[in-house]
Design a protein around this nucleic acid. Structure first.
Lengths: 237, 237
DNA sequence: AATCCCAACTTGTATATACAGGTTGGGATT
DNA sequence: AATCCCAACCTGTATATACAAGTTGGGATT
């Protein structure tokens, strides 16, 4: 296992941010403080912080410092917007309920994205979740990950109930890109029950394929949204 | 105007790549050659090349060099995917029918995005279009642009029937970002008629706000999709 | 009390240097 | 002629140092 000083600092700071040692809007210790505390040059500290900024964990401001930033980069991938209060990211409470998994199983024969041979050879880590906003079920999610070099994934608890936080913290895997196709469909009996809506009501459906910092590792999801009260936001740049 | 050595090298190399001095797959001069030729440290050269890689112009390979890369980084703001043939972008024929506009009018009082004072003061260029794939109506689009410093926009014909091509060619305005919120709704009588589907059928609706290379100029759209036969694709990076 | 200003912070740019480790073409060996 | 191997290249990591330039809080001035 290759080990570099800047990678170690990067990993330490990431985990501290995810664990809440530094919160949204906080300033990280200055580059000079970090370099003396961790016995490395400021150049090396800057290398770590540059990667942190690339990954969307901090925003650097000249003369000010490195500001912890959590919502940005994630906001593009999945965010909800209330009907009336589009702007105010107020006190919406988000809960996750894991219905099944993470568990190892075989790939379905008619999987929604074409899979590589290496992916087909590996087992499939399956995860079935229901996401709530203010106690209302909004999103039903089926996630599939090829079990390639992800030791003990199904045996350990998810970090902060989040798949992406787990991949980032335990395996140093960042989500780098996302490809999706979206449709509007009618709720069948199962969807209507999960998402607490009527049979035949319009449901937003998305197939997603996430690219990661680990070449050849992709995460697949099939998502169903009840958009009666919340729209799905996304931001490209 | 602030000027930095690494920015100058970055700009020089980018323009050389665009002009074809270095072609797809070529290797740039090595970091040592660049540093001695341009009288700067290898550290400074590396800073320029790092930005080049971030912008998708090159791919760096340890032990090899910096490989010129052109095709990457293009993001699809709007694409359709056939149901069965997800991959093959075959010979689907796309047509546009302009139902109304471009015409100057007032902003609606309950416009879907909050507008700045400058935008409200300007008139609104309005455009109402219907897009077909293989003669089937798939997308209904309402577009709104603040008429700020866009001379003769409503008087001249669109370039290639495309709004973005017109902005790029006639006004040097590039689309840089896109923010959207998406919902699934039921088709009302009007939508059902335009999109040739039944009353109450699920329709995908999106509000979009495009950012441009001209600061403070945004383009707004309200879009309705019939996703019965085609899904809406998008790619983030 | 309100204002101004600067010292002490912060990050940004740049130089000079060293060694580690991946890639490759050509000469020595087989 | 085919193989092997290494020297000479390449980028990656790391140290030590200097000055430029943005930000901010508190003391001196008004």
């Amino acid at each position: 296992m290759e080990t570099f000083k800047y990678k170690e600092l990067q990993h330490l700071l990431k985990s501290q941010i995810i664990k809440g040692v530094y919160k949204e809007g906080d300033l990280l210790p200055s580059e000079n403080v970090l370099s003396s505390e961790h016995d490395m040059t400021r150049t090396t500290v800057r290398q770590a912080l540059q990667k942190m900024e690339d990954d969307g964990y901090i925003i650097k401001r000249k003369g000010k410092g490195s500001i912890v930033n959590l919502k940005k980069k994630r906001l593009g991938l999945l965010s909800f917007k209330g009907f009336s209060e589009v702007i105010s990211h107020t006190d919406d409470k988000v809960n996750n309920q894991i219905l099944e998994g993470p568990v190892l199983q075989n790939w379905s024969y008619d999987f929604f994205y074409p899979l590589s041979e290496a992916e087909l050879e590996a087992d499939c880590i399956f995860l079935h979740r229901l996401r709530f906003i203010n106690q209302s079920p909004i999103m039903l999610e089926y996630t599939y990950i090829p079990n390639t070099d992800l030791p003990k994934f199904t045996e350990t608890k998810l970090v902060s109930d989040s798949l992406f936080a787990t991949l980032a913290l335990n395996y140093d895997i960042e989500i780098m890109s996302m490809d999706q196709e979206v449709r509007a469909i009618k709720a069948d009996a199962g969807l209507a029950a999960y998402l607490k809506t009527g049979l035949g009501e319009p449901i937003l459906h998305a197939y997603r394929k996430y690219g990661t910092s680990r070449k050849d590792l992709f995460v697949y999801s099939s998502l169903f949204f009840n958009t009666e009260s919340y729209a799905i936001g996304s931001y490209f740049q």
